[in-house]
Structure formats: C-alpha cells, structure tokens
Amino acid sequence: MMRLPPFTYLAPLSVGEAVRMMADHGPEAMFVAGGTDLYPNMKRRQFEPKVLVGLRGIRELVGVRGEATTGLVIGAGTTLTDVSEHPAVREHVPALAVAAGLVSTPPLRNMGTIGGNVCVDPRCNYYNQSYQWRRAIGFCMKKDGDICLVAPGSSRCWAVSSTDTAPVLWSLGARARLVGVGGERVVPVASLFKDDGIDYLAKARDEVLTEILLPPVDGLRCAYLKLRRRGSFDFPVLGVAVALSLDGGRVKTAKIVLGAVASQPREAVEAGALLVGERLTPALIAEVAGVAARPSKPLDNTDLTHPYRKKMTKVFVARALRRLAGLPDSPENEEEVA
C-alpha cells in the first residue's frame, strides 16, 4: 500500500494563524487544503514536508459570496463540487461551473478545493511517478535530480500546468486575494503564474490564496473545453477557456486562454485581439483559431501525443468560439443545421 511519509499536522482556525504557522516553520512546512493533489504527491515522495498546515478548518475560506452583477467572490476553500453546483456560478459564469465539474471525479471534487485546483502542482509523466520509478529512470530536476527528462538540454522544468479552473478564471479577468504575514494583496489571476514547471506560482511560500474575485459578468459569454482520454479522472492535456462580451453583434472584449500546453496557462493574446470589433463569422473563427494555436507548445510528457494536442488546440478554440456564436461544433455540419 502507498503510504504517506510522517509529518506534524497543524490545524489553524483563521487565515492569520495559518500564515503565522507557515512563517514559523519555514521551508519544511506546506499548506494543505483538500489534499487531493498533495497527498498522492507525498505518497510518491514528490513532497516530504515535515509540517502540514491544514486549511480545512478555516471557515472564512469557504463559500461563494456576492452578486454576479457586482462580482462573485469565491472562497479558495470552497470544494469543486460546491463551485460547480452553485446556482449563481452556473448561471453567470457557466464556464467556471463546467471547468470545476470536469476536474477528476465526483468524490475528488467533494474533497478538492478551487484554491487547490488553481495552485495544482504542474504535472509530467516523468515526475508523477513513485520514488522507485524515478530512481530507476534517473531523477529529474523537479525532485531529487538536476536535468529535465522531457527536454534534457533545457535548464528549466517543463512540467505541465494541469489546472482546469485557472484558464477560465484568467479568461474572465478574475483576481486572487493572497494573504501573508506581511499583509494581503490582490493580483490578477493572469499574473499568479510563472512559466516554470517548478517555480510556477508568483506567490510567496507563506501566502495563502484566500479568495477568487470575479469581475462583474453582465453579458459576458464564456466557454471551457477540455481534452482528455476519459470523461472522468483525467487531468486536462489541453484546456481552452474563452470569454467574450458582445456589443451590437460585435465583439467588445475577448480573452482566449489555453491550459495544459505549457507550464502555466497561456493567453492567446494576438488571437483575442483579432476578435475585437468584429462579428463572429465562421471565417473569422477559423482564422482566429489558427492564430490562437500558436502559443500552444505541448511537449511529450502527458497522455496523448504532443503533435495531436497542438493540432487540437486549433480545433478546440474554433469549437469554443463557434459555441459562443451559436454555430454547430464542426464547420462540416453547418449546412445541415442551418
């Protein structure tokens, strides 16, 4: 049986207490929320913290507050089940409900939190393996080694950002509240990530992600599509989040964010810009999808092949935009439906 390594467990009741505990114990401590990402990693010895600071008992981290028209606030400790089933989330930011509802499996969504999903440790099929497997292949730089096994010539780690919710939050223009010993700050979700498989979060070690702040979403249309082998369990090997607002049939604002094709969610800025001021015609969508796929740079370290994931980026972006435009999924079916 795979078992956890020993640790001491601290159960703070407030965010203030949690960050103090973290500061007190230094680099040997880690936060844990739902544990669905951290505990498997600990069982495989990707992490061996001596102290865990459990966030589960902190009431203020749980729940969805506010109004969609002024901006919903989602506590980082809210479970993915609760996010995906929340009536206001479903009505006003359906892409977020969809993304949260597509994470792993029903029991895992009862345990895992949205904060945990945003901060999920980037994955790699050279890395998310047992200690013995990693010893056999030769440890990689993300844990116990000093090279990247996906790109041996590279000086950085290429583990894949595997969060479903972050691309959606980014596309919506959401912000994150971070609380640390030195105070708190609110940053755009877009600036929460760094392009590195190890050092992937622009968050200090002792900072807790406490809240996700959604902007007012009046009239915003959004979609999330996820590529994976099975309809359950699997992490995304490509995620496409699109959010746009329309004004008189023309696109006013647009953001396309790609997930699971780099070490952080990646915005297709150029493609989004092409949409602004235009009508969502099939021809424009096809053009934009091609441009959007450019920042997609998958490598051979997940399920399905990376050339396929790259190719599907274009298909999925087109499909997401077509859905928002009320068009059928595939251009080939257009006439039938019309």
């Binding site: 099929n125 998310n128 393996q129 497997w133 056999a136 292949i137 082998r229 099975r230 369990f233 699997d234 399920d303």
Partner: peptide, 11 residues
C-alpha cells in the same frame, strides 16, 4: 520503463 504504471494513466 513502463511509461504509465498507474490507475490514472493506464486508461
């Protein structure tokens, strides 16, 4: 090595 010796990655 076996590329995917897990319930998650062996589909």
């Amino acid at each position: 090595l076996h590329k995917i010796p897990s319930m998650l990655e062996y589909k």
